[in-house]
Design a protein around this nucleic acid. Structure first.
Lengths: 333, 333
DNA sequence: ATAATCAAGGTAAACGTTTAACCTAGGCAG
DNA sequence: CTGCCTAGGTTAAACGTTTACCTTGATTAT
């Protein structure tokens, strides 16, 4: 049989109110004799408070929802870790949801999370989401969007980094290192970050006075397979290139693999720059030059701001400015 | 103002019991006229049922807890994904907990999960856990241990694969390919899988009649850095070796990097085999030969069995036998 | 005509907490 | 002695559901 607060009250010969106060540390008005008696009973009975019951009355579950496309994509574990770390630190718990870039699953999760009364949601929209859905519209709890924001979602806060700037810096650097025929193998162009990175790429080239090669944009998804495939296409049609700016590190790793198989020298013949700086970027040889996105930090900040919104809507929480920066390693000369 | 089941009942002019029945599909005894009226009211009012309240009475939260050392380690996202997929399919939700291989955090999470009344827990113990803790002892809900089991935890089920066999197969293969001086760079030897893999390594060598080199075991943690470091040590002390069997893929990747930096030919001069077959194993060049562990499958099965235990303790759920197998790629000749 | 059955839905207790409001006994000032 | 204060509690309503059991009117069987 489960032991409840009533059992404790009975055994300690006090009221449930008193037990509740002791359990929650609101014991200014409890004599230390009573407190110790209660605590002793709790200890020996193995009492575990039922947070579901408290949630009923406090209307707080101390639970956050995290919706991401796929935890299996190396970008997300670090993000998730960042979120979980703040959550844990602040006494919150995290529900993980993988949307698989499916709008239906996203919506289903949003409803589900609300039914479970989470206190807030951290949300990285799928790359196919171009507009707000009805499920999203009826969200009444705080939402933080990370990495990809959604037009029209109100009461949201966004954690984004300047993708355009990151791409700009990367491509500019490539040019200064003497690469002149730079292609861009990107993720799905429906996603905002992809669009922004593409823009940065274009601007960098134009500012440096170099023309983008024709058919310079190969757009696919954010996978290693696509990077591999993209380079294969380039190679097959005998494209003239000496640099590839990739939409993310996975793509870059795939590209490196394809180049390596054909015996193309990286960085001598072709330079490569990725995006994200996932753990694996330093585990390959040559190590990948990439635009570091502060993934963990983004998650951490998202969690911090969300919890802030939950706890006191009054003061607007400052979000520290998150910057990308170029990490120069071995895939550029 | 939140709209509750009472509001719906009032608006549809029925009792809350009736609303509850149609919401939960227990509507055999409800006329379709009434049902439609109720559903219409629900629709236009934007009613969202409060699962916390239902959990109060049903004593089920439809929530599972997942405790792993670190989602950032590439072994775990796939596992987690497997769990989440069944969970979602069966209408459950998943709480993610990173223990960082800390016993205190593990225990804290176990208590927390029970307070939140999860229906069951999936647990990959930290590598430092050698015995059962008091928190673990007072667990009253079903627990499945994955990958690493815990002695003395009753009412648990285990999902494990035969680590010894996997290691045995890998090392035997290396020997048949002509590698004779094989070192083992392992994870922490406090963890069971590490011990079992080591045993498999030893048995394979002895069955093949080759002697393990002296000081053949370098034990560290399951990270790329450790693999890198391990090989560096080997190189520094001028060890005579032509093969490395690694405790996991991360270690293997680190080892490859170190070898590559020194210009050592893989697989010509030195062969490498990893363990796990993480996504990255195929993204590097040469592609990593490794023992595939069905990570996703393990998670999926763990979830399936756990949900089975939760729903009907009667019939013991058969767990399909999970086998490892050697995936031969480019780091062995 | 009457008892038995049935369809459709209502009643109300219960789940385990929290918390505002209330109570009580003793101490103390005036 | 009266009135008031304080420390240390207690009481009971409320949170939003589910569900075992009851009610009612209509239909069927005898």
């Amino acid at each position: 049989m489960k032991v409840t607060i009533k059992d404790i009250a009975r055994l300690a010969e006090v009221s449930t109110a008193t037990v509740s106060k002791v359990v929650n540390g609101k014991d200014e008005k409890i004599s230390s004799a009573t407190r110790m008696r209660v605590m002793a009973v709790i200890e020996e009975s193995g009492y575990v408070p039922n947070r579901i019951a408290s949630s009923m009355v406090t209307k707080k579950t101390k639970t956050l929802g995290l919706i991401i496309p796929d935890i299996t994509n190396p970008f997300f574990p670090e993000l998730a870790r960042g979120v979980e770390d703040v959550a844990n630190k602040e006494g919150y718990t995290l529900i993980l949801c993988n949307s698989d870039n499916s709008l239906e699953k996203e919506d289903a999760y949003i409803d589900m999370l609300q039914e479970k009364m989470v206190d807030g949601i951290i949300f990285t929209a799928s790359s196919s989401r171009t507009e707000i859905s009805s499920a999203l519209k009826r969200v009444k709890i705080p939402v933080i969007t990370v990495d990809r924001d959604i037009d029209g979602l109100k009461s949201q806060k966004k954690i984004v980094v300047d993708n355009e700037e990151g791409a700009y810096e990367a491509v500019s650097y490539m040019v200064t290192r003497g690469y002149g025929k730079i292609y861009h193998i990107s993720g799905p162009m429906t996603s905002k970050p992809a669009q922004q990175r593409y823009k940065g790429y274009l601007n960098a080239l134009s500012d440096k006075g170099v023309l983008p090669p024709k058919d310079h944009l190969l757009s696919g998804d954010y996978s290693g397979e696509w990077g591999f495939e993209g380079v294969k296409r380039l190679l097959e049609k005998d494209a003239d290139f000496d640099g590839i700016f990739c939409g993310n590190d996975l793509i870059a790793l795939g590209a490196m693999k394809a180049l390596h198989q054909k015996g193309v020298d990286v960085p001598g013949k072709v330079g490569i720059i990725g995006y994200d700086d996932i753990y694996m970027a330093q585990m390959v040889s040559p190590e990948l030059t990439t635009v570091k996105q502060p993934n963990y930090e983004m998650g951490y900040q998202a969690g911090r701001v969300l919890i802030g919104m939950i706890q006191g809507a009054e003061k607007d929480i400052e979000l520290e400015n998150l910057k990308t920066h170029l990490v120069i390693r071995g895939t550029t000369r």
